[in-house]
Design a protein around this nucleic acid. Structure first.
Lengths: 332, 332
DNA sequence: ATGAAAGCGCTAACAT
DNA sequence: ATGTTAGCGCTTTCAT
């Protein structure tokens, strides 16, 4: 920048003014602007954003922490967020936690030590205290993709998966006539795991149906774990006739395992998933699933942070529900 | 940091020394160290990495540019790179280009303006000049996942997909007896598109087999585009009996389209993919494909940059071939 | 309309 | 072994 100033025959602060003309009220002569711009061109000069960040308390960067880079759900979210960020000339730092608590902590630590202007995250283990602390230390707007109750003072975008699960299970029982319904979930220590399980339990209770302990299997979101869980279910003396699976990846694995055991889907066992990832329409039978709307989620999250970053939204907390919807295909 | 110094009753530079004790030759009294550490603890102080970067010319950050966040191939690469980076206390900036040239350029621009210590990338459009320029401006080590010939002075990790394609097509013809072989590729402006197409053409020529122009279809790596391409192929008056598909995602779409048209795979049409993503073993028939080894690729790439960052490797360019391998399953 | 100067939070000579 | 000082490349008062 000094070089540019020298070449243009102006002071370094003038160069700075020309280059960050966003701060409007100051007038610069047309002539000077041109000289500076020419010099910038000639030298191929680019401002150093690290320095700008240090000085300006504005990094032009936001961070997004997702839970699983292999889950297509998050791809749409990330893509959407990136697109919105790009429009505003922000870079996006992506972190992937693989649902591991230590990684979530590490992310917070990284943000504290290398501040950004805003944070989006899908916290699975982080306590409210930990998030509060992050905000307190960094004073950065945070928006979570999570049920708002967990993080009471943070903007939240969420899908009502408890209700969606409940409704889907009741539908399985009432419209589809199933009485033996199994469940492939994930650890209840994970908020979605807990909620979907609760939705399931309530639906079964309200339907007056008992669920043998063996009918509840636990996976880890992966195709593999879905296969294992389904295998366990089908090898029971009296296997379920329908299985609610907590995400599509596991549901895909479950259907695969069923086929392997010569079990027809949906005739012998019906399967319903969660997420509505693109693959759900590719496998056969096409997967019945509960759709989430990742593009909308990404949009809401991004707009929520940027509104705060730009001071458009003040203190009041924002909460957005993006409803889920059952999509019936061939697996039920 | 000043606060810590004050609380510990030492100078600010002493705090700095204690905290970045990596620079070994300097001795600090045990007592001082303790005082500083206590103060750090008490204040919950964390160094600001932005400032450290600005001053030290070391950011403790590397960037990775991948071509498609939806392609599971890249997930393993990213995960592996992240793991290795984490061990060394580096953060990873992930960028996704969706195979778009402008996004690749934007990435370079972003790196120039916000320097990192090393860059990994999967360039699809970037010319050698553009990469040279990036290196010239930033003086950062760059390693690419690409054929070394494109970027002659940059460390490269690559799979020999031309040969793998050639071999697979010959195998289709000689061992499997196919004489009408179709091809679903991607734009030849993309290096892998060009190479795989070349491999295909050579194999067919060497086998003495003609390829009608209609047998060559072009997609964009996505499941959808694979479906469309396969539909076009199967609606030909004389459709191919085997189709080589340039990636698994499109191959999955292709198989789906074949089923839709009541075409049996592999009896009526054999399909072979490329990548060996996890889904390849999930769909039915299980996909015959050419495996790439993303974990190894990620490891080599990461080690190559870190070796340079840490000065372990000097000027001489490194090149690693990670061979591909045909995995025969049920779709051929 | 422009320049001079201070300082963002840190590291690394250079002193002592 | 520790303190003093000079920047890293920028933005932003404060002067003029």
């Amino acid at each position: 920048m000094r070089d540019v100033a020298r070449l243009a025959g102006v002071s370094q602060s003038t160069v700075s003014r020309v280059l960050s003309r966003s701060t409007s009220p100051i007038q610069i002569s047309q002539d000077t602007v041109q000289k500076v711009l020419d010099a910038v061109d000639k030298l191929g000069y680019r401002p150093n954003l690290t320095a700008r960040s240090l000085r300006g308390q504005k990094t032009n960067m936001i961070a997004i922490m997702i839970a699983d880079i292999s889950n297509p759900m998050y791809h749409s979210i990330v893509r959407t967020v990136q697109a919105i960020a790009r429009e505003r000339d922000y870079d996006v730092l992506i972190a992937n936690t693989d649902h591991v608590y230590e990684n979530e902590l590490h992310f917070c630590e990284a943000i504290i030590r290398r501040p950004v202007d805003g944070v989006l995250m899908v916290p699975n283990h982080l306590s409210n205290d930990e998030i509060e602390q992050l905000i307190h230390i960094t004073d950065i707007p945070v928006v979570v993709l999570a049920w708002p109750s967990y993080y009471p003072r943070v903007d939240a975008v969420y899908g009502d998966d408890l209700k969606a699960t409940y409704d889907a299970v009741r539908w399985l029982v009432e419209s589809k006539g199933h009485r033996r319904v199994g469940f492939i979930g994930v650890s209840r220590t994970l908020p979605p795991g807990e909620r979907r399980r609760t939705g399931f339990d309530r639906a079964m209770t309200d339907a007056g149906l008992a669920v043998p302990p063996d009918y509840i299997q636990e996976g880890d979101f992966s195709i593999d774990s879905g296969q294992r869980a389904m295998r366990a279910l089908l090898q029971l003396a009296q296997p379920p006739t329908a299985v609610f699976v907590c995400n599509d990846l596991m549901a895909i694995g479950a259907i695969d395992a069923a086929k392997d055991l010569n079990c027809r889907v949906p005739e012998d066992v019906a399967v319903i998933g969660f997420d509505n990832i693109p693959e759900a329409t590719i496998i056969r039978p096409r997967l019945t699933t509960i759709a989430q709307y990742p593009v909308e989620m990404g949009q809401q999250m991004a707009h929520a942070v940027f509104d705060r970053i730009e001071g458009l939204s003040n203190g009041t907390r924002q909460v957005f529900e993006i409803p889920c919807r059952l999509i019936e295909r061939e697996s039920t």
